[in-house]
Simulated assay, not measured.
Amino acid sequence: MSTETSGDFGTICLGWWRGLTDPSIGRSRADLARLKRAGGAVDALAIRAVHDLNRKLAAAGHDMRAAPDRLALIAMVLAQVKEHTGPRLAQRMGQGDPKPLSEIRFDRLIRTRDLTKPEELAELATQLRRALAVVGQGANVARLAQDLRWWTDATRARWCFDYYGASQAAPETEQMSEESEA
């Protein structure tokens, strides 16, 4: 599949998240509650909302059926977000003194590498759920979805720069280079 698509992955995930977190939609509230409790990819994939997300992504050329664990991770983590904010999650985790997320917990999160292993994927989901809790459950939903889709060395390096407040000095990485590493 071509890397050129008709819709931005993060923007599509943001739209899906807004529908999922809309309190006026009863079915969405039930799916949101189930996603918040999902213990792993299979639990998440058994929820209609996750497949709604994939249908929206597939319509824009981002079909995630070949990476169901990644799709589940994105849905489970985004379900934990209560507020769409400007700053990226790693920036929020590293702001202030003391930092909301300790360096030890950040190190553990950032060292989760091989998302092809179910235990690593579950560990990353757990670490991100905890991180979101300590920053008031606010994150840039679109950027977080993109980062989870391409959880590569380049993404994790950018998170390190963001966490330590040096994002202006971070190396410029284009999405295309992240996609080629995935």
Rank of each mutant, 00 (worst) to 15 (best):
L35G: 02
Q95T: 11
V50L: 11
I74M: 04
N54H: 10
R88E: 10
R48T: 11
A79E: 02
L53V: 13
R34P: 03
L45D: 08
L78N: 03
D97G: 09
K99R: 06
L73V: 07
A58Y: 01
L78C: 09
L101R: 02
H62Q: 04
N54V: 04
L35P: 03
D43S: 13
R65P: 01
Q91R: 14
H62L: 01
K56G: 06
L45S: 15
A46L: 13
E83F: 02
G96D: 09
A90N: 06
D97K: 15
P100L: 10
M76S: 05
K99S: 08
D69F: 04
L57F: 03
M93A: 15
K56I: 07
R37P: 08
G61T: 01
K56Q: 07
A90D: 07
P68M: 01
G61P: 02
A59E: 04
G61E: 00
A41G: 09
R34W: 06
L89V: 09
A90R: 06
K99W: 05
A72T: 10
A49K: 13
A49V: 13
D69P: 06
D97F: 06
A49E: 05
G94C: 12
R34I: 04
M76H: 03
R70T: 15
A79C: 03
L53T: 12
K36A: 01
G40D: 11
A75V: 09
L101D: 09
A44Q: 10
L57D: 08
L71S: 00
R55W: 03
A66T: 11
D69L: 02
G40H: 12
H51C: 01
D52M: 05
R70P: 00
R34F: 03
R34L: 12
V77P: 13
R55N: 15
D69R: 12
D43N: 15
A38M: 07
K99P: 05
G39N: 09
H62K: 01
A58W: 00
I74Y: 01
A60H: 00
M64H: 04
Q95A: 15
H62M: 00
V42F: 14
V77G: 14
R70E: 04
E83G: 10
D69H: 09
A49W: 10
